[in-house]
């Protein structure tokens, strides 16, 4: 798609760092700035950079839309599932206190899980929207 060697090489250097930053923001959101939403967007941005330098077809091979669409639903389901689980364990909806023997531990694992759900949904929805725009013929 793009034969500019500078762009291709720089993108190849940057993409792993962007994806790594996304994972860091995802799982370090409790301690530093960021969280699931930001991590999802950064991850999607890394894949979009790949799509811009290597062509949308190559990007759709590593992130096939037919996998992304169920993943988007899975994130929301994970979030809601945590809520249902807390209800089944005897707490209120999304009250993470009951997830572990200790209330603070329960809060930690609950937040980790729902942030993961948010991140998965946001990343897959952003990529699906991007692919829908870029593959459409004018």
């Amino acid at each position: 798609m793009n034969n500019d060697i500078v762009l291709t090489v720089i993108a190849r250097l940057l993409i792993p760092l962007i994806l790594l930053l996304a994972l860091y923001v995802q799982f370090h959101g409790d301690f530093g700035p960021g969280g699931g939403f930001q991590a999802g967007v950064i991850f999607a941005a890394g894949i979009i950079l790949y799509a811009l330098t290597n062509g949308p077809q190559a990007a759709m091979r590593i992130m096939p839309p037919r996998v992304l669409t169920p993943l988007a639903a899975l994130g929301v389901l994970l979030y809601g599932g945590v809520g249902i689980t807390t209800m089944l364990l005897g707490g209120h909806f999304l009250n993470y206190d009951v997830l572990a023997h200790d209330a603070v531990h329960g809060q930690h694992s609950g937040i980790l899980l729902i942030e993961l759900g948010v991140g998965v949904t946001v990343a897959s929805v952003m990529l699906v929207i991007f692919f829908a725009f870029i593959t459409r013929e004018p």
């Binding site: 959101g29 809060q107 937040i111």
Partner: peptide, 15 residues
Amino acid sequence: IEVGVPNMVTSVLAS
């Protein structure tokens, strides 16, 4: 004390 997460924005948003 209740959530124990250092980033308070996360504890408000997520919990």
